[in-house]
């Protein structure tokens, strides 16, 4: 049954690769999880940037929120195109795989472009640690430190994912399709994890 969790012992060679990748994802969960737990704890215990109240000052908040929402849609769409790329590779459709992988990479680059524009907007309003505005408001300064640390960390993961996806695309030129499908599956696992990380960062950093 396709939906059943497999418990038998007939391990195949590619299963080892997936276990390795899931162990790598475990280390990433711990990294982001520790940051997020620290962030939640800080904002729960700090009345100046209390959790449950939007931390961003009003000026420029809506354009920044719109950009973050757009980036959420971009990343979710890139996860969908990645799933399609893997499916095409599994079916032996090289052209379909390449088209969907190119779309995934383009969407990832789009995420970074929108994020850069959002940073520019925030800096123009003085929303960065050490600014005059932040010095007057210690709570905002703490929040901004977390905001930049978490979004830059996530941005680095997007960059790493783009490199991984690019390698999978480049190596798909004349490789056997089962090998292309396996590389796509591994790249996809990482890319989807980066998407999951953003799914948690978006509401915690922009909406509450």
């Amino acid at each position: 049954m396709d939906a059943a969790i497999t418990m038998d012992a007939d391990w195949r060679e590619e299963d080892g690769g997936r276990v390795g990748l899931w162990l790598f994802i475990l280390s990433e969960i711990l990294l982001f999880g520790a940051f997020l737990a620290s962030y939640v704890g800080t904002r729960l215990g700090n009345t100046e940037c209390a959790l449950g109240v939007v931390a961003w000052p009003e000026a420029g908040h809506l354009p920044g929120l719109a950009m973050a929402a757009l980036n959420t849609v971009i990343l979710l769409t890139s996860s969908y195109t990645m799933v399609r790329a893997i499916a095409r590779a599994e079916r032996g459709d090289r052209a379909g795989f390449r088209a969907n992988m190119i779309a995934t990479i383009a969407l990832g680059l789009g995420f970074l472009v929108v994020k850069s524009a959002e940073y520019a907007l925030k800096v123009s309003h003085g929303y960065y640690p050490g600014s005059e505005l932040a010095k007057l408001n210690p709570g905002l300064s703490i929040f901004l430190s977390y905001y930049y640390a978490l979004t830059l960390l996530h941005g680095l993961h997007i960059l790493a994912g783009l490199v991984w996806n690019g390698v999978a695309l480049y190596a798909s030129g004349d490789a056997p399709m089962p090998a292309v499908a396996r590389r796509a599956e591994y790249a996809g696992l990482y890319w989807h994890f980066v998407d999951v990380a953003w799914v948690f960062l978006f509401p915690l950093l922009y909406l509450i």
């Binding site: 969790i5 969908y80 998407d195």
Partner: peptide, 13 residues
């Protein structure tokens, strides 16, 4: 995302 896109629904224990 985990169950459907990352394939957890058919993954090993």
């Amino acid at each position: 995302i985990g169950f459907y896109y990352m394939g957890l629904r058919r993954e090993r224990a």
